[in-house]
Design a protein around this nucleic acid. Structure first.
Lengths: 110, 110
DNA sequence: TTTGTTCATTGAAATATTACGATTAAATAG
DNA sequence: CTATTTAATCGTAATATTTCAATGAACAAA
């Protein structure tokens, strides 16, 4: 147990869950928000910006990178991160239709 | 450790994470999708619809109910669930601006 | 009343996630 | 070459999540 039974669900449902997981921790939300606010690459100052230890930030960045939502380029001795526009749009195309479903209920029994 | 350091983040960041967590498991995505598809209350057949044990479904329903995204009414011997429209809209108002941020980068160093 | 149905709760086991100290790797500066 | 800086990785500890068998509570039907 403790193991998500992925095979019981559709690809779409698993994909929605996978992307949602990226935003399911405030540190990752904060990292992404900072990348948007800066509106360019962030080189190095993420550890100062967010108040967590360097290995922790590094781990969150790794997860976001594995999902493809951000990308990192080595810039001398530091690493620069930014949003991966294409994959961010892919994520939006997956999540928005789910979140934006129509709420008109034909019959309301509740 | 293993404990999210909520106090390091803004209320908005914690709220985004909290809502995203609702969608971070395919079973909960499937439950919500079924409620949307049926477009009315679902009484009972969620366990058959999703292939997980009854206590597991019950727990996922509990989490969605605690977040306010769904509501349940007792209907004789069964319980009817449906989307809570008002809170679903609140959730959308929190998540959509985050997901829909502008992607025009002034300078691109990546 | 007894039996069956439906769903919540409890308890426990397994896996996942979060966090950080210590270390390593790579690049630069002197 | 050595020291410094920056970030990834390793190892580990703590908490969280997922799952389900067993049980309980509420109600309906017999």
């Amino acid at each position: 147990m403790g193991l998500t039974k992925t095979e019981k669900f559709t690809d779409q449902q698993n994909t929605v869950a996978k992307f949602a997981k990226a935003f399911a921790h405030p540190a990752r939300v904060a990292i992404l928000q900072h990348l948007f606010n800066i509106d360019t690459c962030v080189c190095g100052d993420l550890v100062n910006e967010i108040g967590l230890a360097q290995p922790t930030i590094s781990q969150h960045l790794k997860e976001l990178k594995q999902l493809g939502l951000i990308q990192g380029n080595i810039e001398g001795t530091s690493v620069c991160y930014c949003i991966n526009k294409e994959n961010w749009n892919n994520m939006k195309n997956t999540l928005l239709p789910f979140l934006d479903q129509d709420l008109t209920q034909k019959t309301s029994c509740c």
